[in-house]
Design a protein around this nucleic acid. Structure first.
Lengths: 176, 176
DNA sequence: CCGGGCATGTAATCTGTTACATGATTGA
DNA sequence: TCAATCATGTAACAGATTACATGCCCGG
C-alpha cells in the first residue's frame, strides 16, 4: 500500500490540502510508516496528472494559499480496486533483533545496554499511542479503532517479548 | 542497518561470493527483510571501491567463475562502528492493519475474507520458521538462536492478536 | 528436453528521504 | 526576537526492485 492509495483513502472522506494530509498521516499512520512533504506533493502532482484527483486554489490573505485536493470518480475506483487487491507479504523488521544477530562481536555490557535502550523506545511508543486513545475513541470509525487497539497490543506483546529476551541474554552472559 | 553492513557482518565469519551472500540472507534474514542480486552485486562493487572488501576470482571449469569477497581491516572497523551506532526507530508495518483502516469501504464478507487470508499467511510464515529450528539449533551461535526464538514468538503473538481482531470484527458486523 | 541450480552482472524504474527555498503570522 | 505553525514546492540522492542478459551442468 503505497502512499498514493493512503492519500486517496483520506480523500474519500473529505477534500484536503497536502498539509492536511501530512497531519492526518502523522496522527493515524505514523505507527506503520513515515511520510514527508517531499513525497506528498510529488504524489499529489502525479495523481492530478492521472486524473485521480482535481485541485482548486483557495486564496488566503493572512496565510499562504491552499491547494485543495478532491478525489474524482476515477480516483475512487482506483482506491476501491486497490483496497480489494491481495495483501503483500510483510517483513517483520526489528532493528534490535538485526543487531542481536551480530552480538557475538560485542561485549555483554553493550548487549544489555542495547536491549534496555530498545525497551525504553518501545515504552515511549506505547505511551505515545495511549495519548491518542481518547481522540480516537471519539472520532475514529470502529475499524480504525480496532486498528489502533491491535497496534497497541502489538507493542505490548513486543515489550514482553523483549523483556524475556533481556532475561535470556542475562542468563547467557552469566553462564559463561 | 542497510544491506552493506549485513554483508560485512556475514563476511566477518568467512569469505563469500555474492551468490553465497544471497543464500545466507534468505536463510537467516528473510524474516526481517528481502534482498535480491540486483542490490547485492552493486553493493559489493561499491564496497570494494571503498576498500571495505577485496575480491579474488576463482576460475571453475564445470561451473561459472566465482568472485570471492573478503573483508578488510577497514571493513571490520566500519562494521564494528556501525554495530555500536544507536538503533533507528522502527515502524511496525502491517499490511492487514493498513487495509483494515479503510474497511468502512468494504463489505463484512470481504473483511473476514481478508483477515482469514492474512492469518493463513502468518501460519505459513510460522510453519516455515519452524522448519529451520533444527539447523539453527545446530549451527547458529547463542545470539542468533535467541534472535530466532524471539522472531518466532513475534509471529505467534501476532497470530493471537489477529485471531482476537477477527473475533472483534465478527462481533462488529453482527451487531449492526 | 526442460526446469532448476550455479554464478555474475546491468538498466530502467520506483519510492521515498533530506535539505533547501520562500514567506507570512502568531505567541512566548 | 526567535521559534513554531501554516503552506507549497524542487533537487539531489539513497536504497532497493524487477526484468533482462549470459551460459553451463545435472537430474528427471
Amino acid at each position: 500500500m503505497n502512499i498514493q492509495y493512503i492519500i486517496l483513502g483520506f480523500l474519500m472522506d473529505k477534500s484536503m490540502t497536502g498539509y492536511d494530509i501530512r497531519q492526518k498521516f502523522a496522527l493515524s499512520f505514523s505507527f506503520f510508516s513515515g511520510i514527508s512533504f517531499g513525497s506528498i506533493y510529488p504524489a499529489l502532482k502525479s495523481m492530478e496528472k492521472e486524473g485521480l484527483i482535481t485541485t482548486r486554489l483557495e486564496i488566503q490573505r493572512e496565510a499562504p494559499n491552499k491547494k485543495i485536493c478532491t478525489i474524482t470518480e476515477k480516483g475512487k475506483e482506483a482506491f476501491l480496486n486497490h483496497l480489494r487487491a491481495p495483501l503483500p507479504v510483510d517483513r517483520y523488521k526489528n532493528s534490535f533483533l538485526m543487531r542481536m544477530f551480530f552480538f557475538g562481536h560485542l561485549s555483554p555490557e553493550e548487549h544489555l545496554d542495547f536491549i534496555h535502550k530498545y525497551l525504553d523506545k518501545l515504552n515511549e511508543t506505547l505511551a505515545n499511542l495511549v495519548k491518542f486513545q481518547e481522540p480516537i475513541e471519539k472520532h475514529a470509525d470502529p475499524y480504525q479503532l480496532l486498528c489502533f487497539e491491535s497496534g497497541k497490543q502489538q507493542i505490548k506483546d513486543l515489550i514482553k517479548n523483549m523483556q524475556q529476551t533481556a532475561e535470556s541474554l542475562k542468563k547467557l552472559e552469566t553462564k559463561k
